[in-house]
Design a binder for these strands. Structure first.
Lengths: 120, 120
DNA sequence: TCATTATATAAATAAATTCTTATATAATGG
DNA sequence: CCATTATATAAGAATTTATTTATATAATGA
């Protein structure tokens, strides 16, 4: 799974986006995050793990607490990906050259994205 | 499910991002898309439905064919959401006010994002 | 050291996702 | 109308995800 996969997957969940919204205000502990959500502490810990695996947040150690914060530079890959298509998507066909340069990586040959053997 | 949920979910799948990459070159039919992917036609049709439900692509009718194309203005919501956090994420704390304005919608009260009864 | 607090992990489960193959629908051209 | 082509839908299997409760680990402070 690419980092882009992980970022999009992480942000697809509304609970995780709300966690991100909270962290945009400053770092927060699992306790801080558990309070406003109708969700158990282990569930929060799991969501944090997903966000951290995607590189979107990071953890600091403070005694027994593990405050999380947004990780600098983390949205850059997302921003770049989106920016690449934005012009096209908006119906203006500038930057087609950039898209063309990028394409071979994804469309040069049959892409096997299936799950199962060899594609975990 | 919000449109933002659907957009992120749709783009989390690498096959669907590759479809988007292909559509950035111009409209394509299910046949066109089935060829370069090691995936069945019904699977392509399904991915297209996910992308269309998210508002990312649209369908044109041309005889028996149903060419798909990127839908103008579709990335705007994503771009806006990302832009809102980008500055913070990058470690510069401008635009905190904008984030604060947005927050009440998501954190004003305990958020029940659980699945199951009432939360399909 | 022991009780407390904060967090993580494990096990179980329900629901959603992503595929496949088989079949249905719908438009075209002879 | 009939055969063909393009696409959609159905049924079912395997995997993944989000959740819970129960328990483990780890740091603190009395």
């Amino acid at each position: 799974m690419t980092s882009l996969d992980q970022c999009f997957t992480a942000l697809a969940d509304p609970t995780r986006r709300a966690i991100v919204a909270r962290l945009a205000l400053g770092e927060a502990t699992v306790q801080d995050l558990s309070r406003p959500f109708a969700i158990s502490q282990p569930a929060i810990s799991h969501h944090l793990k997903v966000l951290e695996s995607a590189g979107l947040i990071e953890t600091r150690v403070d005694g027994t607490a593990r405050p999380r914060r947004l990780k600098p530079d983390a949205v850059q890959a997302l921003w770049d990906w989106l920016g690449q298509y934005r012009a096209l998507w908006e119906g203006q066909f500038q930057r087609l050259d950039a898209v063309l340069d990028e394409l071979p990586d994804e469309l040069a040959e049959p892409i096997d994205t299936k799950r199962g053997k060899g594609n975990p």
